[in-house]
């Protein structure tokens, strides 16, 4: 019995000491040579893929958290992390928080997402919708009133319409409402909301009368289960369906949106962070396509890299929320000629 007791004590002691003793390098994410990332759920697969290949190539360790765009900015502005991923540009309130926390940032667009509007594959009446029609369906006034397909277009059947979409605490929802309804964070409330795109896909694929929106990557991986519809800016414009090409060349409007990395200027001075950013410009496009998102045109990456090298701080995007229907390249060009 004594031997056993000593054995047990030894195990506990060894466990404790091994945890304390080898506590050298991992101490603080941003002070050691670990690169710490956090932020948007939507950007997470991109951040994860780049981290994976970067760590394999350089043996520099990286960590990626998923606090959401807003949660990521909170941590970023407290100086807790090096880089935060965002599925929308930084907001006024977050600019303030960063100023209070003494954190200055470099804003780097890294990829596109195209919010996809999709229906059930057996739905044979709708191929495309205009922004106005989508607005009529999703605006707050539609709640409880626009409940059947034929209320949007007369020739569509008189069937109930079942709505699915990203839940309201989400950057995807913010952008969708901004682009479609015209006001960020404002929509009808009687739809099935979820952060998990797979749940939305499942909901739509089980219901012939369904319509829903979610990030492009979920459509890209589930093209046999749901059908995307084309979006037209107005009645006279052609409808464009989302694809990696139509999002990349800017013709899928207004639901294509840039995704960002925000890098703190303090972290940008560290060599491994510089390597990480250069790695994104070089290897990023392929990795981004692989995880179902859309890369920027090559020239944009060069501009992003130049922006990083020259340490141009501040946001090139409108200060409060997203600017709809403009490509990253146009914006960066504008920012270069007219630094504000």
């Amino acid at each position: 019995m004594n031997v056993k007791r000593i054995g047990l004590l030894a195990v506990i002691t060894i466990f404790t000491f091994s945890m304390i003793a080898c506590d050298g390098n991992g101490a603080n994410g941003q002070n050691g040579n670990v690169i710490s990332l956090d932020g948007s759920n939507t950007v997470y697969p991109v951040a994860g893929a780049i981290s994976e290949e970067f760590s394999a190539a350089t043996s520099i360790n990286t960590t990626v958290g998923v606090s959401g765009t807003g949660g990521g900015f909170q941590r970023f502005c407290r100086g807790e992390i090096d880089i935060t991923g965002a599925s929308r540009p930084i907001r006024d309130s977050e600019l303030q928080a960063c100023a209070e926390g003494g954190v200055d940032y470099l804003e780097l667009p890294i990829a596109y997402d195209g919010i996809t509007v999709a229906v059930h594959p057996d739905n044979d009446w709708v191929d495309e919708m205009t922004v106005d029609e989508l607005k009529k369906l999703w605006e707050p006034a539609a709640q409880g009133k626009i409940t059947h397909w034929n209320q949007i277009r007369d020739e569509w059947p008189e069937r109930r319409i079942e709505l699915f979409g990203n839940s309201t605490d989400n950057g995807t929802y913010d952008y969708f409402t901004h682009a479609i309804v015209g006001e960020q964070h404002s929509s009808r409330g009687d739809y099935t909301g979820n952060v998990n795109g797979n749940i939305l896909i499942q909901g739509i694929s089980n219901n012939t009368n369904a319509l829903g929106f979610f990030p492009f990557a979920y459509y890209f991986e589930n093209q046999d289960r749901v059908r995307s519809i084309g979006i037209a800016l107005d009645e006279d414009s052609p409808a464009v369906v989302p694809s990696q090409d139509s999002i990349n060349d800017g013709s899928y409007q207004p639901l294509a949106r840039p995704m960002f990395f925000y890098v703190s200027t303090e972290a940008a001075e560290r060599e491994e962070v510089q390597q990480f950013i250069e790695f994104i410009a070089a290897e990023g496009p392929e990795l981004i396509r692989e995880v179902g998102y859309v890369d920027l045109p090559q020239s944009s990456y060069e501009m992003v890299l130049a922006r990083f090298d020259q340490r141009i701080t501040g946001t090139a995007f409108t200060v409060d929320g997203a600017q709809v229907g403009i490509t990253v390249e146009e914006l960066l060009k504008h920012a270069q000629t007219d630094p504000s």
Binding site: M19, I20, A21, C22, D23, G24, N25, G26, A27, N28, G29, V34, S36, N41, Y44, A47, G48, S51, E52, S55, N61, T62, T63, V64, G65, V66, V195, N196, G197, N198
Partner: peptide, 27 residues
């Protein structure tokens, strides 16, 4: 965390756990 390229090295290290990794895969 959701993703890390190393294992925790001590009590002050950042970490991830099984349920979080499972949730990540489901989404």
């Amino acid at each position: 965390l959701s993703y890390m390229t190393f294992v925790p090295s001590g009590i002050h290290s950042e970490f991830t756990v099984m349920p979080i990794q499972i949730y990540d895969w489901v989404t």
